[in-house]
Design a protein around this nucleic acid. Structure first.
Length: 430
RNA sequence: GCCCAGGUAGUGUAGUGGCCCAUCAUGUUUGCCUGUCACGCAAACGACUCGGAUUCGAAUUCCGACCUGGGCGCCA
């Protein structure tokens, strides 16, 4: 019976392992095969004079990255990796790999990201790459667990939608029988409808699609959004949820993924401290003004250069709050005392924006007014406005980019590293 | 979409007008080797993105296309 390579010890006696041929070192009368599965690597040693004909012929025929089944006696040998080696009675080729390989799994020679993504299934055999996705999985688990424990209801909303209700970003049009439809850019409106439905606390982790022709290391055309919406909460309350969730996620990864962090050479994985600083938008602009050459004024969007400058000053996660209403969407709640600013926020990592959210406008008439102020036509927002006419609690929420969370957590240089099969302007396959 | 830098064996690279029937590493094949662990040694195999131009001569210069990386824009 197959056992994980990690669990083979010098005292295992007889053992059978199944895995990939990682490396071959043939010394003539003696040959070493390194066999790798997802748990580790074991040395298989074949003394040619003593080995059976079947073992020898399979060993001769096998290529790197073929899947093999190897069974035999485990010997304790100090010189071997893990202090043990397997001397096989059985050496069976289960799946022979073509040669040459499209990329070097053993990493003697590096490969460009583009080459790696073309052969992602091979790339992901590398422990360093597998570690990223194991950590991503752990992070998603921690997030689900946290939100569940906080009383959130997990919902699933449509990704095929009828219209671009939010404005702004470009949508992907699709053919939907005889109608025109789009891939959803955000679950925003559906989350809000569930506030009208009385669910109070909802979350969704799902794909979002943006048809922007951006070409950067932090944008994807298909991304994963972690979204929450909470009734009777203001922006401050959901910011607290967000920072607590981030910290719990880091803690969980730190506790459960030490091998993966070692693989990724992140020995000093540090957990952010709460509360994250709250930086007013106006103060953020002042910091940027001092540090960058490009002119920037109150009311401008924060450019990547400004983002980096402010990030360097802040040194860790932080919120930008008190945004001018005119540069936030119509559904962001203006402050009663000063409607020129609103209850919107961005969660920033020193490298980039991770999340944005707000207390939402829940008053139907104010919403109509704000839509008009943005130069939009309220009539085309009827689908969005309807729930606001039948009693909807005040509410707030945010959306957090899962890939950016993983990217910043692990210091990845390109967001594509945090996605198995990234979709960007130029990549639709595999 | 704009700007910049690129495109050379399966992979990663060197080469900026003749010294290139193209460097190095890895890989693959063959031979030798009983303790390797990036095994070693010997030999062989394998590439200038495509199209056009300049030139006696182009991997190298120019033009166009396609592709890649980075930055910007766009992305509430």
């Amino acid at each position: 019976m197959r056992i994980p390579i990690q669990s083979v010890t010098p005292s295992s006696g007889q053992a059978e392992v199944v895995g990939w041929v990682h490396e071959v070192r043939d010394l003539g009368g003696l040959a070493f095969f390194l066999i790798r599965d997802r748990t580790g690597i074991i040395q298989v040693t074949i003394p040619k004079k003593k080995a059976s004909e079947a073992v020898l012929s399979a060993a001769k025929r096998v290529s790197r990255e073929s899947v093999v089944r190897v069974a035999g006696i485990i010997k304790a040998i100090d010189k071997a990796p893990g202090g043990r080696e397997l001397v096989p009675d059985v050496f069976e080729i289960i799946s022979l790999a073509d040669s040459p390989l499209p990329l070097d799994v053993v990493e003697k020679v590096p490969a460009d990201l583009d080459t790696r993504l073309d052969s992602r299934f091979l790339d992901a055999r590398r422990p360093r790459v597998a570690a990223v996705f194991q950590i991503r999985s752990a992070a998603m688990h921690a997030i689900n667990q946290y939100l569940h424990n906080e009383g959130f209801i997990n919902i699933t909303t449509p990704k095929i939608v009828a219209a671009a209700t939010e404005g702004g970003t470009e949508l992907f049009p699709i053919a939907y029988f005889d109608k025109e439809a789009f891939l959803n850019q955000s679950p925003q409106l559906y989350k809000q409808m569930m506030m009208a439905a009385g669910f109070e606390k909802v979350y969704e982790i799902g794909p979002i699609f943006r048809a922007e022709e951006h070409n950067t290391t932090k944008h994807l055309n298909e991304a994963t959004s972690i979204d929450i919406e909470v009734s009777y909460a203001d922006h401050l309350e959901v910011m607290r949820v967000l920072e607590e969730m981030i910290v719990k996620t880091y803690e969980y990864v730190s506790m459960n993924c030490s091998d993966q962090l070692t693989n990724l050479e992140i020995p000093d994985f540090s957990i952010p401290k709460t509360p994250f600083p709250r930086l007013c938008y106006g103060d953020a602009i002042e910091i940027a003004k001092k540090k960058i050459e490009d002119p920037i004024r109150y009311g401008d969007d924060i450019s990547p250069a400004a983002e980096r400058a402010i990030g360097a000053e802040m040194g860790g996660h932080y919120f930008i709050v008190d945004w001018p209403s005119e540069i936030r969407p119509y559904y962001a709640m203006p402050f009663e005392t000063d409607p020129s600013i609103c209850k919107a926020f961005d969660l920033m990592h020193p490298r980039m924006e991770l999340s944005s959210g707000a207390q939402r406008v829940h008053q139907h008439d104010l919403l109509v007014e704000q839509i008009k102020k943005k130069g939009l036509n309220p009539e085309s927002f009827e689908f969005y406005l309807r729930p606001f006419r039948y009693g909807i609690p005040p509410h707030a929420g945010w959306g957090l980019g899962a890939e950016r969370l993983v990217m910043t957590m692990l210091g990845l240089s390109n967001v594509r590293e945090a996605v198995l099969f990234p979709r960007d302007m130029h990549r639709l396959v595999p």
